[in-house]
């Protein structure tokens, strides 16, 4: 199960037939395992890793540190519930250390992100402070290295 998940996390395009070969199982068995993992919410979805810098699309990513005042009745989870449903937000993590949440956010421009923080995030009840950090360049995301070398460094004449 763990091996199957590790392989799918690395490459979601692997077909059940390929996974069967890689894990020495029957294709049907793999299909059943995946169906079960999807049904019980272990597999939450399949997405594509896009290097948007290769396109004309304008975008900016930001990482925002958020400090909050925990609520008596629901602790951090209740505050997280309010933040996570904002559609602009791509990631939300409860942190140890000097602040409470990390929010990952994508906007069209820095201004848009700044407005979002000022108008939607900071005013939330219990949020006591925010610090916005803009991403300047992505080198690696979700285990995938960006800017892969285009040329195969191996000598094609060596057999």
């Amino acid at each position: 199960m763990e091996k199957l998940l590790t392989l799918l996390e690395r490459d979601a395009t692997l077909t059940p037939a390929e996974l069967a070969v890689m894990l020495s199982k029957e294709e049907g068995e793999i299909k059943e395992m995946i169906a079960e993992l999807e049904a019980n919410g272990t597999i939450l979805g399949y997405k594509t890793i896009v290097d948007w810098d290769k396109t004309d699309r304008e975008y900016v990513n930001a990482l925002i540190e958020v400090k909050v005042m925990p609520q008596h009745d629901g602790g951090f989870d209740k505050i997280a519930d309010k933040i996570k449903h904002l559609p602009e937000i791509k990631g939300l993590y409860l942190m140890s250390g000097g602040f409470d949440f990390t929010v990952l956010l994508e906007g069209k421009t820095m201004k848009e992100v700044a407005f979002f923080v000022a108008r939607k995030l900071a005013p939330l009840e219990n949020v006591t402070a925010t610090a916005t950090h803009f991403v300047l360049k992505t080198y690696k995301d979700k285990g995938t290295v960006y800017d892969m070398p285009e040329k195969d460094p191996r000598d094609k004449l060596l057999i």
Binding site: D152, R154, D155, K156, L157, L158, I159
Partner: peptide
Amino acid sequence: VTALTVGQPD
């Protein structure tokens, strides 16, 4: 060239 000639791991 799209080579499939190399005898070493990628």
